[in-house]
């Protein structure tokens, strides 16, 4: 294991031992190994440096490396926990963990809040929601009249912004999501429950047997 691990560490900066990542997340050691197969494929798609850059992330999401999307950018920024402009394997596993079906709603609610708090002010502000709404309309090639956009924002903030100060804080967000649970659907990836089947090739590289026995 030692030789294998040092080789992996050299090729994949920031690579952490699967057993450690497993202990901090909802993933088993085998599932962390499976995620490493996915990580290797994404991180080697443009530059084979063992790290995922933004272009590689977009390529994996859209199968198109040139596609710019503010939501994908925001997700990338949240995955890039160390703010290095790249995602290492530890970042990747810890961020994906939030999307695991067994992770608490509390963690998912918090991640979604940070996702939409694009400027990192601690509030989801109306101008941020408007910006995201317009981006979504562009992405889906939908056209809405300005007054319809404003009406949607009015309605949303009437429902979510309990103290009507024009911004949504974390407690208002928790309350709003509890009344609109479908908003959290994007925060759970059923794939993560069955990842060793999705990426069976990990079995050939697995250290699980050595660690488990």
């Amino acid at each position: 294991m030692g030789r294998f691990q040092s080789k992996v560490t050299r090729q994949y900066p920031g690579h952490e031992v699967p057993i450690v990542l497993s202990s901090e997340t909802a993933f088993s050691v085998g599932e962390v190994e499976a995620l490493f197969e996915l990580f290797k494929s994404i991180s080697g798609s443009v530059i084979d440096d063992g790290l995922i850059n933004k272009e590689e992330f977009q390529l994996a999401l859209f199968k198109n490396r040139k596609k710019e999307n503010i939501f994908a950018n925001r997700i990338f920024d949240l995955f890039d926990a160390k703010k290095k402009g790249v995602i290492d394997f530890g970042d990747f596993v810890r961020a994906l963990n939030v999307f695991h079906p067994n992770v608490s709603q509390e963690d998912k609610i918090d991640f979604a809040f940070r996702l939409y708090d694009m400027d990192g002010t601690g509030f989801i502000e109306r101008n941020e929601v408007k910006q995201m709404l317009i981006a979504l309309l562009c992405e889906s090639e939908m056209k809405l009249a300005d007054e319809t956009i404003e009406a949607i924002l009015d309605k949303t903030f009437l429902d979510a912004d309990m103290n009507q100060d024009g911004k949504i804080d974390i407690s208002e967000w928790k309350n709003f999501v509890s009344r609109n649970p479908s908003l959290l659907k994007i925060m759970t990836l059923p794939y993560l429950r069955d990842i060793t089947t999705t990426f069976p090739s990990f079995i050939f590289h697995s250290e699980v047997d050595e660690i488990a026995t």
Partner: peptide, 26 residues
Amino acid sequence: SVPATMNAFELISTSQGLNLGSLFEK
């Protein structure tokens, strides 16, 4: 068409950029 009574976050959450499931599609 999108009704004005729709919740902004419901709309936003339909973005392809937020659908991480596509990371797992080869």
